[in-house]
Design a protein around this nucleic acid. Structure first.
Lengths: 201, 201
DNA sequence: GTCTATACCTGGATAGAC
DNA sequence: GTCTATCCAGGTATAGAC
């Protein structure tokens, strides 16, 4: 995998713009304008626009996995790790209100475009799904682990979609609180010394 | 408001295609191909593509309001009416798995395009939000009515997003069941003669 | 009202100089 | 590696015949 400076710049800028404007609506001129190169230069680094998308998705997959790994060792309990996931709704609140969730909106767009990279984009969901499932399994919910993981994923996606539509900070805060309360019901009492004092940092 | 035959055809076809392919990715040629008119003919009925979008949104607003009015009189209790809303996840299941929710995906796309019709599209959410809020108020949750309405909206949006990503029928069924169970906790016992027997038709 | 023809622009993509 | 010049397809939009 080449890691030339401008190649990385292209991926970085495309990543941002695909998120903010959508993939289809982002042109080579847009990306070129951000990093200050010419349009023709793209084709030294990539064969097509789709190949840039592929690189962007791989970049996001890598970053996401790194983040999950970090959460895995930073938080001491499965419940706290799940809260790390919920917490990104707060960390990225402003961006979510403007552009929605990066994963959900990309998968949605590629589904409508019937784009071949669609399956790749869903792997982003898979990372979170697998990781969350693992946490719920550790919480002792072997049978329901995947169902619960999907539920948390869906919940956060719904919050992102409506937060984007209404640009409502308070709504996000309320829903985060609800998710954490809901989560307590799935946390074994033995491992629940503090109740909500450790919810969200 | 003019109601010429072809104008209606254009709106109808655009409505479908905007949903299936997205607004930006749908061209005049696409629409023209469906209803068998020439591209030049559009400009007799509309000044621009944006004006078609406006007409499509208004059409959807009208249809949505009609549907809500129908639910209002078809179902006898507020809880049953809220279940009417949840039920569209089942009725439109196949389309949702392919294209997502028509409201959520349109609002999401227009947000990224920074399109002037964005505020109009959010009125679609408003219709559901106001209607759901009304139902929760009738259920006796005056203070929390709007919060609960937003919660149901977000929940259904999240289900649609993940159902679209994973094309998973069972997931939709499971979540619908969860929403109905959740809803029972907000239904006054006095008005709850049957438990889940009347859940979803 | 609907068509054809066409203007005009922007998009992705290629060729070749440097 | 990066640039300029260019091609070509497709998009929206206009003009004018019918």
């Amino acid at each position: 995998m080449k890691t030339s400076a401008t190649r990385e710049q292209i991926i970085e800028a495309a990543d941002q713009l695909f998120y903010q404007q959508g993939f289809a609506h982002t042109s080579f001129s847009d990306i070129a304008g951000v990093i200050g190169i010419s349009r023709g230069n793209f084709y030294y680094h990539f064969k097509s626009k789709d190949e840039i998308l592929d690189a962007v998705i791989n970049e996001r997959l890598q970053n996401t996995q790194d983040m999950l790994d970090m959460w895995e060792e930073a938080a001491s309990t499965p419940a706290a790790r799940i809260r790390s996931y919920i917490h990104i709704l707060l960390t990225n609140r402003d961006k979510i209100m403007r552009y929605g969730c990066p994963v959900g909106t990309l998968c949605g767009e590629l589904a409508k475009l019937d784009h071949c990279e669609r399956t790749e984009s869903i792997r982003l969901f898979d990372l979170f799904r697998t990781w969350l499932r693992h946490q719920f399994t550790q919480l002792g919910h072997k049978e329901d682990a995947d169902r619960l993981a999907m539920h948390v994923l869906a919940w956060s996606q719904g919050v992102a979609t409506l937060a984007n539509a209404y640009e409502d900070k308070d709504f996000i805060d309320q829903e985060i609180q609800m998710i954490c309360t809901w989560l307590e019901a799935y946390t074994p009492p033995a491992k629940r010394p503090q109740h909500s004092s450790d919810a969200l940092h």
